[in-house]
């Protein structure tokens, strides 16, 4: 299975067109709420793990109310996961100060911050992907523009997304021809990959140019126009205020700890 198939980029567009209460919300309310969510998640202290857990409620709620299969989001998170692993992987080496003990095992601060990074990464990337999956990139771009994001950035975002398809398609075609001619050899020389990546870049640029040309030919002038504009309704206010309230509560109090204490009858 090629990378293109594995992450199923096109699938996101199909998901974005589904009908559900979350899909019907205005793109702006979802974008703002997700932004608040990301800021809140990022604002936790570096060793925090347990207090982050209740925040998983937000991406899970969006996915389940939006009827989006979690597997396709999880797959995309996994594709980006190496990035977070690289960012956090040196923490356990440099920060060996013991901070907690669980069942006799001493946990160093490094491991705790590493876990915290991974959780934050999963939360933020998961929420962003869920946002795209239940809004559709075009509507999201138009929504962001209406929120006051300069048009240049909104269009950049849209093109970035559109060209992902282009690069994935070129990439899968190239790896296929590579596989067909590598005579079953598993490890290929680095040089081959170097030239492959270079070619991928050049071909993607050519292709992107042709796509742009086709857009210009049909009157594209930098403005994103969508067919159906959603309106900000009371449900949008409810969605925004409700979730923002929850995020603030979860930031101020460690809900996981409170629930744990309540369940164990106050034994600590």
């Amino acid at each position: 299975m090629g990378l293109g198939q594995w992450i199923e980029i096109g699938h996101m567009d199909e998901l974005g067109r589904m009908e559900s209460p979350v899909h019907r919300l205005d793109a702006r309310s979802k974008a703002l709420t997700t932004l608040v969510f990301i800021v809140v998640v990022m604002s936790f202290p570096r060793y925090e793990v347990s207090a982050l857990m209740p925040l998983f409620l937000y991406p899970f709620a969006i996915l389940s109310l939006g009827r989006i299969p979690p597997a396709c989001i999880v797959r995309k998170i996994l594709v980006a996961a190496p990035l977070a692993l690289v960012i956090g992987m040196f923490n356990p080496y440099f920060d060996r100060q013991p901070v907690a003990a669980v069942c006799g095992y001493v946990i160093s601060g490094g491991w705790l911050s590493f876990a915290s990074i991974i959780i934050r990464f999963t939360l933020t990337v998961g929420a962003a992907l869920a946002l795209v999956a239940c809004t559709g990139m075009d509507r999201l771009g138009a929504g962001l523009e209406r929120l006051g994001l300069p048009r240049v950035f909104a269009v950049q975002l849209l093109f970035l997304y559109r060209y992902l398809f282009v690069i994935a398609a070129e990439g899968s075609r190239m790896t296929r021809s590579l596989e067909l001619r590598s005579a079953g050899l598993q490890s290929l020389r680095l040089r081959v990959y170097g030239s492959l990546v270079g070619h991928l870049l050049l071909r993607s640029m050519d292709r992107a140019d042709r796509v742009y040309r086709a857009m210009v030919a049909r009157g594209f002038d930098g403005e994103i126009r969508v067919m159906r504009r959603t309106h900000f309704r009371w449900t949008d206010w409810m969605f925004m205020i409700g979730w923002t309230g929850f995020f603030i509560v979860a930031r101020l109090w460690n809900l996981a700890e409170l629930v744990g204490r309540w369940l164990t009858g106050g034994v600590s």
């Binding site: 199909e14 974005g16 067109r17 398809f165 796509v211 086709a214 049909r218 594209f220 126009r225």
Partner: peptide, 20 residues
């Protein structure tokens, strides 16, 4: 493939008229 870049056939055909 260069000409069809929108998520659905409908949106693709609507792209030009919307821009107009």
């Amino acid at each position: 493939d260069d000409q069809l870049f929108m998520p659905t056939v409908f949106e693709d055909v609507a792209f030009g008229p919307l821009n107009a």
